[in-house]
Design a protein around this nucleic acid. Sequence first.
DNA 1: TCGAAGACTAGAACATTGTTCGGTGCATGG
DNA 2: CCATGCACCGAACAATGTTCTAGTCTTCGA
Lengths: 213, 213
Amino acid sequence: MLDGAVALLDEAGEQALTFRALAARLGGGVGSIYWYVTGKDELLERAADHVLAPLLHAVEEQPSTADPLADIRASALMLFATVEQRQWLAGYFLRNTTVQPHALRLYELVGEHVMRLELTPRQSFHAVSAVFGFVIGTAADLGQRPSQEMLDGAVDRDSYLERTAEAWRALDRADYPFLHHVSGEFVGHDDADQFEAGLDLILAGLRQQAGRS
Amino acid sequence: MLDGAVALLDEAGEQALTFRALAARLGGGVGSIYWYVTGKDELLERAADHVLAPLLHAVEEQPSTADPLADIRASALMLFATVEQRQWLAGYFLRNTTVQPHALRLYELVGEHVMRLELTPRQSFHAVSAVFGFVIGTAADLGQRPSQEMLDGAVDRDSYLERTAEAWRALDRADYPFLHHVSGEFVGHDDADQFEAGLDLILAGLRQQAGRS
DNA sequence: TCGAAGACTAGAACATTGTTCGGTGCATGG
DNA sequence: CCATGCACCGAACAATGTTCTAGTCTTCGA
């Protein structure tokens, strides 16, 4: 059942996960699903936890290196890769205060790397929060659902970006110098690059903080 | 009408904004709203833009100082303060690829401060993206709707945090050394502090990047 | 083998919500 | 006086989450 739910979510997003659609996919009735979950909230929760399991496994398998920051980076990249393709997952994380076991474990694992930096407890707490906030936030932001036009195949991603850049360039250069400045970068930009660049800023800040103590 | 919509959203979150509730508040009929907006999407869009206007004004009024990073910091703090109290706004930003005029202008303003750092266009683009991703992501994450218990007044924020920390401490210390390490910081922590700490990591990374070039 | 208890399935029925559509005043201009 | 267009209203429809009740299948003890 969870596989079916995740499949629906992955294929067409959060709004596509309806009890009727899921029941149809499973070849059963609507009511049957309620035997396993108490409602839609729990269904989403379980689906999220379900997707997190393989990721957690991968992160746990990842060997520690001498550089804690490199390990944090690797973990963050894996998390990003998982969430980027699943906007519903990012949305779920941002909406739900209740932390599931798998997510908590992930938090802990990154935290253990941070501990090796020998910061104060407060700094460590803030560091892990910053990394997770950035990963989830950026993944949600960048991994946005392709617009209808792109789904229709009317325009591909490149022309879509190009058109946006075009709109930026059409703005008055005096009023929008920055957008003109970076419009060339926007075209053909890669989400993963953008994410890594931001992550590296945080990590650089962390390294500096660790060096001072 | 937008005032009414924003009021509903602020009071009880995104799910509270229904056409019937809004119509009741305005003392009108359900259908009337459709005379002004094409649907719920546009209603939310307009509401978001509506809230952004005063913020944009404040950011524009903010005088530039000699330190670009200080200016970026100040802008980010203002944006955070606006979004933190409005999870629906954060959610909207994360869901919507279409950038409204006010949001674009905000992006531009922060970008202009970044330009003074004299990074490459690519670095500048990534820097602004990182700041916005972090602000929105963290605001969405931290500004989560209080749980039902807290709304009921059954527990206040402090005891809620305390209970979570208690749960962390109940975990095996050998399996969760990090959570034990920071559980004390979690109790009574301030969201704004947490945000500023993360933001300062990014800014430190930026300063370093600017110094190298 | 029978029967009953429990695990599981199925779908009808209900409340809520977004949205559509035809209709109602009402001011203004001819 | 009437027609036209604007602003507004609310009944009706479709989709969806949820509940409820009845049905089926499995299992296990007497």
